[in-house]
Nucleic acid binder design. Structure first.
Lengths: 194, 194
DNA sequence: GTCTATATCAAGATAGAC
DNA sequence: GTCTATCTTGATATAGAC
């Protein structure tokens, strides 16, 4: 049976499915090709090389994660809930996609030795998105003065949640722990600004 | 010039130096051999294969990290300072050894796809050490009842510090941020138990 | 235990037809 | 754009002498 998706989409799906769960270096191109049911030359025609495929898979995933996070923010009803929506958003997101062993952006960056790579830039985009939006969401909660510092703490906690998943903690447990810690950070920031 | 260290030690040094900064998969055995000034057969005689070398390099590093942490704990003068000594300990440690791009245990685990690998077990040893000792150190600060929960939060924060380093934040900045967040978690635990 | 030289193999990438 | 078949490379590991 042939899938109805384009070869390009099947390749992106397979790359996400395999490389982000098994590791990029540990996932040979052959295996991706087989799962996508696509011929080698097609991959290279679309993406140039393996790294090109991984980069585009990361970009697509960042877009989807962005959407999922926005959705979680929109479901929240207070500024404070919107600020911590990151964490339930992460949990929902991980339940909706093939869950990478942990964060694919950090994972790919950890494997890629050269800072200037397109792969590293994908991680930078992720970090940038997190920093910027967390800071925006923090302003209505603690005011513009303390927003940057609080955003940094929340990014640290979020990053810690991802790392705990790599340590083998279940996503739900790691998220609950991160949520609890985030509340402490927000309370402390409110006491300072108030 | 030939080093005075044994071939075995030169191999471990080179593996730590290269594989933990560039990534294991991205570091060919040849390169390790060249830097160690050792012949291929010697490596395989000592370690069996590349993974064996990496595993022993990790074990050695865990031992040294353990020592460094103990040292930081001993330099502290109050139970509370001992509980957070993890973070200045990390900073000193990273300044004393070839600093891996981030945590070599998490890094190696991230690359290794199979949960049962000897490599994954090295990460488990690290997590185990952190959990156990943090809990012991937390008892004199917040009492036995809340110690486990606080230890989990501090491990999350520590793991977040490591992840922030991978995101490109300087070690000192990440440590300072983690220290600040840890103090919040401890204060909150004290309020609950008091 | 250590060396030089080499076998073996897997993986990324391409050639050329359709 | 897509396929089958293949090329090329580079990396792990071993053979056999000292």
């Amino acid at each position: 049976m042939t899938s109805q998706l384009s070869a390009r989409d099947r390749l992106l799906d397979a790359a996400e499915d395999l490389a982000f769960t098994q590791g990029v270096a540990a996932t040979p191109v052959d295996v991706i090709l087989k799962q996508a049911n696509v011929a080698p030359a097609t991959l290279y025609a679309h993406f140039g090389n393996k790294e090109g495929l991984i980069v585009q898979a990361l970009q697509r995933r960042l877009g989807r994660w962005d959407e999922a996070w926005r959705l979680a923010i929109n479901k929240a009803s207070t500024p404070r809930e919107r600020l911590v929506a990151l964490l339930p958003g992460l949990q929902n997101y991980r339940e909706s996609v093939t869950p990478a062993r942990w964060c694919p952006f950090l994972g790919v960056a950890a494997e890629s030795p050269h800072p200037g790579d397109a792969l590293q830039e994908a991680l930078a985009s992720d970090t940038q998105l997190l920093s910027t939006r967390l800071r925006e969401l923090a302003i209505p909660v603690v005011g513009a003065t303390g927003a940057g510092a609080l955003a940094e703490e929340l990014l640290l906690i979020y990053t810690g949640v991802l790392g705990m998943i790599l340590r083998g903690v279940a996503t739900g447990d790691a998220v609950a722990l991160g949520l609890k810690t985030s509340q402490l950070a927000i309370d402390a920031a409110l006491n300072e600004s108030g």
